[in-house]
């Protein structure tokens, strides 16, 4: 009879009235109502977790497609070898083909992935986890941009060998890849999440990649005025331009930085838009 625990007293106090302040200050299970919310996942750890999970998906599903992306670009360069008859053309072909790998994977495949996720109800999984939408979009975009690294590097190196271009400044790929990757992956994610049907997401991704192919690989001087405007609007163009400039013996680094700045700006905008589209698609 004497062994009434502190917890039991606290429970009784709470049971016969609203939890009285001070009635049992150290009771471990004192009532809180509404119930406490579990912590949110913070942006960076969640982004890291999504990135890691997406990279592992590549092993299962994406490696054949990465080969396709690289072969496609190398094939285009081989084809263009007979056509590109000057140093300017050669630079355009190599830079365009390298960035095409980024467009294929980051824009086209990511648009398809998000389109499929949305159509298949997969967004519910993320929408019922306390994770910032930006973490999911950025994690997936970063992973897809990473998938492009080997293909882009291989394409650029083979291109330089094919067309006898200097490789001294190819390190600039370390900046071109993440920035063009951000811009194109953001665009891909945005299109995939916004498309009302999966087929439309696929179509948008394919069209975006075709645009990057035509407008990136062909030298700008040979395009009609209308296409020239379209070329200026396409974010991959600035990645291509930056890469072309670095084939000079003494590149205009300011212009390279300006081109990459455009990529970064577009990347910021498109990833923000993609995050908005994710939120919109996840809670219909």
């Amino acid at each position: 009879m004497s062994g009434v625990s502190a917890q039991a007293v606290a429970g009784a106090a709470a049971a016969d009235g609203r939890a009285r302040p001070g009635a049992a200050p150290d009771a471990p299970d004192r009532e809180v109502w509404p119930a406490p919310l579990a912590p949110r996942a913070r942006l960076l750890p969640a982004l890291g977790a999504v990135y890691r999970a997406q990279l592992s998906r590549a092993r299962v599903a994406r490696i054949p497609l990465l080969f396709v992306a690289t072969f496609q670009s190398v094939g285009i360069m081989v084809l263009m070898r007979g056509v590109a008859d000057g140093p300017a053309e050669a630079r355009a072909v190599v830079a365009g083909s390298s960035v095409l790998v980024v467009a294929f994977v980051a824009l086209n495949l990511l648009a398809q992935y998000f389109g499929q996720l949305r159509a298949g109800g997969g967004l519910d999984h993320y929408a019922t986890l306390p994770v910032p939408p930006a973490a999911v979009v950025l994690g997936a975009a970063a992973a897809y941009a990473s998938f492009t690294v080997p293909g882009t590097v291989v394409t650029a190196v083979i291109g330089c060998l094919l067309f006898q271009l200097p490789m001294a400044h190819l390190w600039v790929l370390a900046a071109v890849l993440p920035l063009a990757g951000a811009a194109l992956a953001g665009l891909g994610a945005f299109l995939g999440l916004l498309a009302p049907r999966q087929e439309l997401a696929t179509l948008c991704g394919q069209l975006g990649m075709s645009a990057a192919l035509l407008l990136g690989v062909l030298p700008a001087e040979r395009l009609p005025a209308v296409l020239d405007l379209a070329r200026d609007l396409l974010p991959s163009t600035y990645g291509v331009e930056a890469l072309i400039r670095t084939f000079d013996a003494d590149p205009d680094w300011l212009a390279v930085a300006a081109d990459l700045g455009v990529c970064a700006g577009v990347g910021l905008l498109s990833l923000t838009a993609a995050t908005w589209a994710f939120r919109r698609a996840a809670t219909r």
């Binding site: 977790a49 299962v60 997969g122 994770v131």
Partner: peptide
């Protein structure tokens, strides 16, 4: 299960835990 389909079982569980904070 679309969101998890291409992950391994272990990674799907671990990642979900991470995304729950």
């Amino acid at each position: 299960s679309t969101a998890l389909d291409e992950m391994t079982v272990a990674l799907a569980v671990e990642t979900t835990g991470r995304l729950r904070g």
